[in-house]
């Protein structure tokens, strides 16, 4: 299998899940072009249930594009995405049904939060539960309050997002995604738009999620967080996966010259 890197095979047996188990998420030969420019070249990746993956790499290397291909927000031009039995082949006019099924099981958190500014915090979290899960407004609000409480923001329920700090807004965005009970969470640089202290509140919530066994893929520049919280680190550059493996191994002992350079540049910053 081409997606298994040399590093992870050489690593000691601390990997959580056996490789023989069927992958939970599997990306095969993904390509993505914008017009004539191909920005993802043949990316394959597998992930097990409950695994936490960090994607790192220089900006412009296609990390966001990869996340957006996974949930088909920006459909790949070639290749396939499978998650737990549902497969979306690029190019095939895959049934809307499958797309919706896949989408519904994946939550996503953006760098810029993207909360709905004209709705209260509670409405932000409840809306999709009512519209897509068929919950009553009462049940949805109850669930939303539980989630807001979990991210420490139950007291902000009636405010509008603009009255909340950036860190609070990002935690609300996480609660909004969790409200739909996703099986996989995608995070695209969730703390890059935040002051460091505010970023910490968000990272704490993410760490708790990871500890609870949520399957997560996060694009991040927080190297320490990537190393300590994720099970596996994937390094991307110029639209390809350069290296992947157990976080500590990749961070401490990278094999690829380009990765060595990147990690040095990040540490010196």
């Amino acid at each position: 299998m081409s997606s298994v890197s040399p590093v992870s095979t050489a690593a000691p047996s601390v990997i959580k899940v056996q490789k023989t188990e069927q992958a939970f998420l599997s990306l095969k030969g993904l390509h993505k072009s914008f017009g004539p420019y191909e920005v993802l070249h043949d990316v394959s990746l597998e992930m097990h249930k409950g695994e936490v993956l960090a994607i790192i790499g220089p900006s412009g290397s296609g990390k966001s594009t990869l996340l957006r291909c996974i949930n088909q927000l920006s459909p790949p031009t070639a290749g396939s995405v499978s998650m737990d039995g549902v497969t979306i082949e690029a190019g095939c006019s895959s049934s809307r049904n499958d797309l919706v099924k896949l989408r519904r099981r994946i939550g996503m958190v953006f760098q810029s939060f993207n909360l709905f500014p004209h709705l209260t915090v509670l409405q932000n979290v409840s809306l999709a539960q009512v519209r897509t899960m068929g919950r009553s407004k009462r049940d949805a609000d109850k669930k939303s309050l539980e989630l807001l409480d979990r991210v420490g923001l139950a007291n902000k329920a009636e405010l509008y997002p603009a009255r909340c700090s950036g860190g609070q807004q990002q935690r609300i965005a996480i609660a909004r995604a969790l409200a739909l009970e996703p099986e996989l969470m995608l995070f695209d640089e969730p703390t890059s738009a935040l002051d460091p202290e505010l970023g910490l509140e968000v990272l704490a919530v993410m760490k708790e999620l990871a500890n609870e066994g949520m399957s997560m893929i996060m694009v991040t520049h927080e190297m320490h967080f990537a190393e300590t919280v994720s099970d596996r680190v994937v390094v991307m550059a110029e639209g390809r996966i350069l290296e992947q493996g157990i976080s500590r191994e990749v961070m401490r002992n990278p094999q690829h010259e380009r990765v060595v350079q990147f990690l040095r540049a990040v540490r010196d910053r």
Partner: peptide
Amino acid sequence: SGQREAADVIGL
């Protein structure tokens, strides 16, 4: 445009 994307990913 982020508003459309956010609506999209929560399945509206």
